[in-house]
Simulated assay, not measured.
Amino acid sequence: MGRKHGIFSIQSEEVNISTKKKAAKRSGITIPHALETIYQQMRIAGNRIQTIESYDYIFNQFVKFNKLEYVEDITADSIYEYLGSLEVAQQTKLIRLKSIKAVLSKFHNNGWMKQKFWSTINIKIDKQVKKGAKANDVEMLIELIDQDTFIGFRDTVVILTMYKTGIRIQTLGELKERHIDYGYLSLNLDGSILKNHKFLKLPIDQELAELFKVLIKQNDKI
C-alpha cells in the first residue's frame, strides 16, 4: 500500500502510451484528397467528364479492395492483387490497369509518389487484327445509297471520308469547314475535337475535296 505506483497504475500508463502512438497523424496525403486535386486539374485541362468518372470508378474500386488510405500505401503488390481478384476478360483488366496507371502518373506529377513502379506492370492479351474494308466493299455500299437526296449524298461523303482518311466517327461529327485545307488537300484537326487533344493532319484527294464543296453548298441551302 505504500508504493507510489501500483500494478494497475503502471498498466494505465502503458495503455496511455500505446494510445498516443496510435493517435499519431501521418504526414502523407490521403487518397481522397489526392483524387479531388487531380480531378480538378483534369477539368481545368479540358478532360471529358466521362473520362474523369471512369477513372474515379475504377480507382476507388482498387482502393476499396486493398483498404488503402494514403497515397504512400499504394504498392505494386496492391495492383497485382486487385487485378488478380477480377473475374473479367484480359481486355477489361487491361483497361482498368491503364486507368490506375493514369491516376498514379498524375500523383507522380504532383510529387506525391517518387518512383513510377507501375510502369513495369503489364497485361498480355491476344489482340485481334480488324480487317479493313476493301474498295469493292465501299463501292457496293455506296451503290445502295440514293445520292439524289441530301441525306443519301451526305452519307456517301461520310463513308468516303472515313474510308480514305481513317477519321474516327466521333471526330467526323465535329468536323467544320475551317478544318478543310483545299490548297494542301488535307484535314487539319485541332486538339479541341480529338480525344488526345493533339493536332492531326489527314491527307485527302481531289475527289473528296470536291465532294466537301458540294456538301457545304447543300448545307448552306438547307
Rank of each mutant, 00 (worst) to 15 (best):
H33C: 03
R3H: 11
N122G: 07
L175G: 08
I193E: 06
Q206Y: 09
N109D: 15
M140D: 10
I100Y: 09
T75A: 06
D73G: 01
Q128C: 01
Q147T: 14
Q115F: 09
N110W: 03
Q41N: 13
D137W: 10
Y55N: 10
F199N: 11
A34N: 03
T92W: 03
T171E: 15
L189W: 07
T92A: 00
F212Q: 02
R26K: 15
A24S: 13
L187T: 05
K67C: 00
D148I: 08
D190M: 11
A133K: 06
R3I: 09
L211E: 12
N136F: 13
K25S: 13
K4H: 10
A209T: 04
I44W: 00
G2M: 11
V88D: 02
A209I: 09
K131P: 02
G111H: 06
K213L: 07
T156P: 01
A23R: 08
M140S: 12
Q128P: 03
K21Q: 10
M140A: 09
V214K: 11
K221W: 07
V138M: 05
F199M: 11
N16V: 12
I204F: 01
N47P: 01
E72L: 03
R3F: 11
V71M: 04
K64A: 04
R3W: 13
I58H: 11
M113G: 04
E14G: 02
Q50W: 07
E53Q: 13
G46W: 09
Q115G: 01
F153Q: 09
Y163E: 02
E143S: 04
L35Y: 12
V63Q: 06
K198C: 08
D77N: 14
Q147P: 01
V71W: 00
A135T: 14
F153L: 04
Y57Q: 14
K221C: 03
I95W: 03
H5A: 12
A23K: 12
N188M: 14
W112G: 00
Q11G: 11
T149C: 09
I151W: 08
A76G: 13
I7L: 13
K116L: 08
V63P: 02
Q206C: 06
D181S: 04
A23L: 15
H197T: 11
S192T: 12
